[in-house]
Each structure stands twice: as structure tokens, then as C-alpha cells.
Simulated scan of single mutants.
Amino acid sequence: MKIIDFHYHPLSPLVDFLPQPMGLLRKRNPEWVKRFANIPSARDILSFLDEEEIDYAVLLAERIPTVTGIISNEYVASLCKGEPRLIPFCSINPALDIHMDVMLEKLVKEGFKGIKLWPSYQHFYPNQQNLYPLYATAQKLGIPILYHIGTSVFEGTKLKYCDPIYLDEVAVDFPKLNIVMAHAGRGFWYDKAFTLASLHKNIFLEISGLPPSKLLEYFPRLGRIGSKIIFGSDYPDVTSIKKNVDYIKTLPLEPSVIEAILGLNADKLLKIFA
């Protein structure tokens, strides 16, 4: 069984992060802060993934300077270069970037395999018309868009922007665009997120940041859409990726569903195993 972590934050160098998120990380995962106090190399990350028994990880750039800081596209690209187990996702900020479609084409040519957008951090509604050229380009290039859809404790977050309902319009207008909801509507949008993933062939639920022990409480019918659920850890906001994976393996679901959640569904979008 191949394991893909669809939501891994490299989160270094530490100097790029603002005091509030850095304080939360020191409290929640002091071992990570100690281990990666210096800028980690790709080898450091791969060694950690080996310890956690993770085969592949999606490394996320973060172009959100007013909330957590900036993990640049260039930094993520440098970590992933020549390392097929590390899959780079770029970040584009609608408040800062113009000609986002052109920017995305350039980034994909440089090797990025997807894009992460942060509506509640970057303060935009996902169905804004100025984003449509970006979506058309992502659809043409065949890359997924990962959206932060759920609550957050970081200062500056405005939750109104990440209500899942805005993705309904995007899914209809771009039927071949693969849309992934990170955090699966965490907080008070679980039912909406589940409904959208059930209705739309191109919407997926990514479960990063959710305790595996709560998954069937949040989504009692999870097994019915097992082909739409994608594993992500949200590391380093969890202390052990392996523990989460091991718990998911114990859920009362068909073995084929568990295998799909932990790797095969992500591979549909990333095409790693082909």
C-alpha cells in the first residue's frame, strides 16, 4: 500500500514565520521546532518521511505574508527538485499577483504539480470572476487546486471566505478541474463539504487536520464516497503522521476504501504511480 500525504508544510526557514503561528507550532509540536531549527534539506524531509513510513508528500508553498509569513514557491521548488517523492504545489495570492493564469503556466513549466489557495487567509471568495482565467488554465494543464476550506486559529483569518458553497459554482463552470477541499469543511461545514463531494465528480475531500478517530463521526457515510477522500496530515500540526495512518487502517471500512484514501485517490490527481 503506497501512502501519499497530500498536505505537508515544509515550514522553514523559521525566520519566515510570524510570531503567532510560530508560537502555536512551538506549543503543539516542539520536537519539530527543535529538529528543524535550521533550514532542512530534501534529505532531512525524506529521512523523516521514511521514519513515518510515508511514500510521497505534497509540499505546500504559502504566499500569505499577513497571516503566517511566506514559504515561497522558489523554496518549495528547491526542496522538491530531483526528488520524485516530494511533490511541489505552488501558491498564488489574488491580492498580490496579477496575470495569475500566466504565472501558473510558468510555475507548472518549472515543475509544480498543483496549486494551493487560501481563501480565508488571502481574503477572496473562490467564485470571484477574476479567478476564472486561473481556473481555466489549471483545467487546461490538468493540475488540481487545493483550497483551505475550514476554520483556522491564525490571526487575520476571515472564515466567511472559505464556506464550501462557493466551490459549487466553480465545479459547475469548470467540470474538468479537480477541486480538493483541504480540511473537509473543518468546524461547521462538514455536511456541506460532504454534499458537494457527493454531487460533483470533480470535488474531493482532503482530511488534513481532522483527528482520524473523529472521521466517522463527522462523516457517517464516508464509505459511500470512499473514492473522493484524500489523506493529508497537515504536518507539523500533528506530532506523528504514522499514527494517523495507522488509525485510518483500523476504521471499519473496506480494505479497498482504506487503500484509496491513503494513496490511490491522490494518485488519480497526481499520476505518480502511472
Results as ranks from 00 to 15, higher is better:
residue 180 V to H: 00
residue 273 F to H: 12
residue 155 E to Y: 01
residue 11 L to T: 15
residue 114 G to S: 02
residue 249 K to N: 11
residue 27 K to S: 13
residue 188 F to L: 13
residue 125 Y to K: 07
residue 25 L to R: 10
residue 198 S to M: 13
residue 273 F to R: 12
residue 74 E to Q: 14
residue 163 D to F: 05
residue 261 I to F: 05
residue 274 A to D: 14
residue 72 S to A: 06
residue 168 D to R: 13
residue 159 L to F: 07
residue 38 N to T: 10
residue 194 F to V: 15
residue 208 S to F: 00
residue 12 S to W: 01
residue 100 M to D: 10
residue 223 G to K: 06
residue 134 L to R: 02
residue 11 L to Q: 07
residue 52 E to Q: 09
residue 182 A to D: 02
residue 210 L to T: 10
residue 151 T to D: 13
residue 126 P to T: 09
residue 223 G to D: 04
residue 31 E to T: 13
residue 248 I to N: 09
residue 23 G to L: 10
residue 144 P to W: 01
residue 147 Y to R: 02
residue 164 P to G: 01
residue 138 A to F: 00
residue 189 W to H: 15
residue 161 Y to S: 11
residue 89 F to H: 05
residue 264 L to R: 15
residue 247 Y to R: 07
residue 62 E to C: 10
residue 116 K to I: 06
residue 43 R to H: 10
residue 50 D to K: 07
residue 255 P to W: 07
residue 61 A to G: 00
residue 177 L to T: 02
residue 199 L to K: 15
residue 151 T to W: 08
residue 129 Q to L: 14
residue 188 F to W: 15
residue 119 P to E: 03
residue 43 R to G: 09
residue 74 E to D: 13
residue 190 Y to H: 14
residue 87 I to T: 00
residue 181 M to Y: 03
residue 123 H to I: 08
residue 265 N to V: 04
